[in-house]
Design a protein around this nucleic acid. Structure first.
Length: 298
DNA sequence: AACACGGTCAACCGCGTGAAG
DNA sequence: TCTTCACGCGGTTGACCGTGT
C-alpha cells in the first residue's frame, strides 16, 4: 500500500501564496503552542492549509531570525565550500548559515552560484572575476574543488564511499546520488587536504581560527571555555547528541584543526543550539569577512 | 504601449526516515 | 516484525517581476 499524500488532496485545502491574515493566524498559534505538531495547526485554527504547508511557511518565511535580501560574499564563500563538501545537502548547509533557510540557499545556489561557479571553472573567464570580494570567495573555493585541481580531485575521489556514519539529521531526506555520496571520512580527508595545503586559503582558514580563538578567549573565562571545548569534543567524537543539530562538519573539523577550530565551531554550535540567530555567526562571518576582503586570501 | 523572455523565489510534490502502535 | 503516520528533505513548478525589443 503506497503512502497517501499528506493532505490526501482534501477538499477545501487551500494552496498558493499565503495571505497576511493567514500568516497572523499561524504565527499567533505558534506563539501559543510552539512550533511542531503541525498536524494540529489546521485542526485547531481556521487555516484551510495542510500541515505541511504550515510548516513550510513557518520555517521558510515566518520563523524569527530569518535574514532576507542579498547574500554577502562571505555567505557565498561558505555556501560554495559546503556545497563542495556536502553536495546538495541544503539543510546541512543552512545549519551553518542560520539566518538563511535551506530553501533560500537552494534557490540562491540554483539561480546565482551554480552559474558563477560554472563560469569560473572556465580558466579564461576566471581572471575577470578576481577583482570583487564576491568572486574572490568563489574563486577560492574553486581552487580547492575544481576537477582540474589534482589534490582536490584526489580528495573528492576519497568521498565516493558508502555513507556509514553520516549524522541523520544533517543529511536526511533522500539517499545521496552516486556522485554526491559523502562520508565523514571522506569529508575529513577533504578538509585535511585543504588544511594541509600551504596555500592562501589554508592560511586564511588558520587566520580565521586564530582570531576566533583570541576573540573567544577574550570573551570567555577559562572555565567556560574549557566546558565548551569539552562539549564540542563530545560532539566531535560522537559522544554528543549528533542526532540533534550536529552535522558532518563538526565530526571532521576537530581532528584536523585543533583547539582554534574548536573555538570557532563552538561559536557555531552555540548559535545553533541556542536558537539565537546572528550572534555567534555574526562573529564567524565577521572573521571571515576580514579574510575574504583580502584579495589574496579569498 | 504591448509583448516576449528570462530571472527570482515562494510554495508544492514525492520520497526517505524514524517513531509509535 | 510489520504497518502506519508525522515530519523533514531535495527537486521541481509556477506566479510574479524586471528588462529588452
Amino acid at each position: 500500500m503506497g503512502r497517501p499524500p499528506c493532505c490526501d488532496n482534501g477538499v477545501g485545502v487551500k494552496k498558493g501564496p499565503w495571505t497576511p491574515e493567514e500568516d497572523i493566524v499561524l504565527v499567533s498559534y505558534i506563539q501559543q503552542h510552539g512550533p511542531g505538531n503541525w498536524r494540529s495547526v489546521p485542526e485547531n485554527t481556521e487555516l484551510m492549509r495542510c500541515s505541511k504547508s504550515c510548516r513550510l511557511r513557518w520555517t521558510n518565511y515566518l520563523r524569527p531570525g530569518i535574514k532576507r535580501g542579498n547574500f554577502t560574499p562571505h555567505e557565498e564563500g561558505i555556501i560554495i565550500h559546503l556545497q563542495a563538501l556536502l553536495g546538495n545537502k541544503w539543510a546541512a548547509i543552512a545549519s551553518y548559515l542560520p539566518q538563511r533557510t535551506d530553501n533560500d540557499i537552494k534557490n540562491y545556489w540554483n539561480t546565482h552560484l551554480k552559474k558563477k561557479v560554472k563560469r569560473l571553472q572556465q580558466p579564461a573567464a576566471a581572471d575577470s572575476f578576481q577583482t570583487t570580494a564576491s568572486s574572490n570567495a568563489v574563486t577560492c573555493s574553486l581552487n580547492y574543488y575544481s576537477p582540474s585541481s589534482s589534490s582536490s580531485h584526489h580528495s573528492l575521489q576519497g568521498m565516493q564511499q558508502p555513507m556509514n556514519s553520516y549524522p541523520n539529521t544533517a543529511c536526511s531526506g533522500g539517499a545521496p546520488s552516486n556522485n554526491e555520496t559523502t562520508t565523514t571520512a571522506g569529508v575529513s580527508n577533504l578538509f585535511q587536504t585543504w588544511m594541509m595545503r600551504p596555500s592562501p586559503a589554508a592560511a586564511a582558514a588558520a587566520a580565521i581560527c586564530k582570531v576566533a580563538m583570541q576573540d573567544f578567549q577574550e570573551e570567555q573565562d577559562a572555565a567556560a571555555a574549557a566546558s565548551i571545548v569539552c562539549q564540542e569534543q563530545m560532539v566531535m567524537t560522537g559522544g554528543g547528541d549528533v542526532n540533534n543539530k550536529s552535522s558532518a562538519l563538526e565530526m571532521v573539523v576537530a581532528p584536523v584543526m585543533g583547539a582554534a577550530s574548536t573555538a570557532t565551531f563552538s561559536l557555531l554550535e552555540d548559535w545553533r543550539l541556542d536558537d539565537m540567530p546572528g550572534q555567534a555567526m555574526d562573529g564567524f562571518l565577521g572573521i571571515s569577512a576580514g579574510c575574504c576582503a583580502d584579495p589574496i586570501m579569498f
